[in-house]
């Protein structure tokens, strides 16, 4: 069916740079959403080990205290911050806030919804995620 309709499929989400930073933010939002869902499931599994007793719980906790565990947690922090900050931008945008006012377009027809406010919010979301990751890494490896 997909081939018949010539649909891009999931690969349409890849190569996000084709359409500017907004498409890149869309791709990151999807990726971080999936990442957080995976973390959420893993987190439920992690905390459920307490049902097997103190020894099993501490063994699981030790896993998170490794270098790999710290790196994974830092990535989770980054995903969480980006998803939240960009999510706020999107929620406001979905209500028509910050997407510009309609009016007669002039050549070369620069779209008003793809404006500097939105771009700055995306860059700020990425920046905040990077800062949060660095802070998290500092705390975890600084112990």
């Amino acid at each position: 069916m997909e081939k018949q309709e010539n649909k891009e499929g999931i690969k349409g989400w890849l190569n996000p740079g084709r359409y500017g930073i907004e498409r890149f933010a869309y791709w990151l939002m999807r990726l971080t959403g999936i990442g957080l869902l995976v973390y959420f499931i893993a987190h439920i599994y992690e905390t459920s080990t307490i049902l097997n007793g103190k020894a099993a719980w501490e063994k699981m906790l030790d896993l998170t205290q490794t270098t790999e565990g710290h790196i994974i947690l830092a990535i989770v922090i980054g995903m969480c911050v980006f998803h939240t900050a960009n999510g706020i931008r999107l929620m406001l945008g979905h209500g028509g806030i910050g997407v510009g006012k309609p009016g007669r377009p002039d050549y070369p027809y620069t779209p008003r919804s793809i404006n500097m406010k939105n771009k700055l919010c995306i860059y700020a979301s990425i920046g905040l995620a990077a800062l949060a990751m660095m802070y998290g890494l500092g705390v975890m490896f600084g112990e």
């Binding site: 359409y19 500017g20 907004e22 498409r23 933010a25 869309y26 939002m29 999107l90 945008g93 979905h94 209500g95 028509g96 997407v99 510009g100 309609p102 377009p105 002039d106 050549y107 027809y109 620069t110 779209p111 008003r112 919804s113 793809i114 939105n118």
Partner: peptide, 26 residues
């Protein structure tokens, strides 16, 4: 619609569908 804005980027007539969709959702 997840407001990726690609529709507006490629529109050759300056219609800006992404803006219309967000205003419509309003």
């Amino acid at each position: 619609c997840h407001f990726a804005g690609s529709c507006s980027m490629v529109c050759p007539k300056g219609v800006d569908p992404a803006m219309g969709i967000q205003l419509l959702r309003g």
